[in-house]
Structure formats: C-alpha cells, structure tokens
Design a protein around this nucleic acid. Structure first.
Length: 124
DNA sequence: AGTATGACTCATT
DNA sequence: AAATGAGCCATAC
C-alpha cells in the first residue's frame, strides 16, 4: 500500500479527512455541463449533511487541484453564487456558468430549481 | 492553545 | 417573511 505521498493534498491538515475532500471533488467533476448542485447536496451525498461548510473548504482547495474542478457549478441552496468572490475576478464564476448555458441574474442562477443536479439522486 | 471566521444549512423566534 | 441562534469542523491568527 502506497503511503500518503500518492494521496498528498495541497491542503494542510487535510490528511486526516482527505477522503472527504477527494470525494467532494469527484462528485463535482461529475456534475453535467449546464447543471448545478449545492454544498448541502454534496454533503448529504457524502453522509455529512450538516457539514456543508466543509464542502466550501474543499472547493477553496479545489483551485489547486488537477484536473480542475468545475467549482462554479457548486452554489448554495438558494441558487446564489455565494463563492464567486473566491474566483479570480468578481464576475468570473458567472461568466463560466453563462458559458455553459446557465443564465445568471443578480448573482443567482435563473431557473435554479430546474437545473439543480442532486448527486444523491442522479448519481445514486 | 484558545478564539474567530467561513464558498452552509436548518430550526426557532 | 425576515432575523437570529445554533450545529458543523477545518483553517487562520
């Protein structure tokens, strides 16, 4: 069995819970283009429903991950782009979403309810 | 080592 | 319906 060098993460202190972060990224990468999901949905799928905040931290760490994680498809339960401030520019997240065909108005995904992709249901 | 903060969410008021 | 408190737990200082 290989040591942690293979599973090493750029996140300090994540070694203990690296699987959680890894699972988050794995799920996010499977979000179809043009669809979105939420922190809570991912947390629920991973069995840590009340730890949606950790999903946010995983997203923050995802910027240094390869292959890249479509973090713009992960938003909060209101369909709002709560994490856009963590992108390079204040509008980058919205631009990425619109490039995928998702309409964004006032930092909120239009028709979010219809575009919502729940891993606990879709991914099973 | 203790406190504060946060890309969240739910329950209560 | 809007505001507030609480649970969550890793990171930052």
């Amino acid at each position: 069995m290989k040591k942690s060098s293979e599973n090493k993460l750029p996140v300090a202190g994540a070694a203990k819970n690296y699987s959680f972060f890894n699972d988050v990224w794995d799920v996010v990468r499977q979000v179809p283009k043009g669809r979105v999901t939420t922190y809570g949905a991912i947390a629920n799928y991973l069995g840590t429903t009340s730890s949606a905040r950790m999903v946010g931290w995983a997203m923050n760490a995802s910027f240094t991950m390869k292959p890249k994680v479509p973090a713009q498809r992960v938003i909060n339960r209101n369909g709002m782009l709560s994490g856009k401030i963590h992108f390079g520019t204040p509008t980058l997240m919205q631009e990425l979403l619109e490039k995928e065909g998702i309409k964004v108005e006032n930092d909120t995904v239009v028709d979010f309810k219809n575009l919502f992709w729940d891993p606990a249901i879709e991914l099973q």
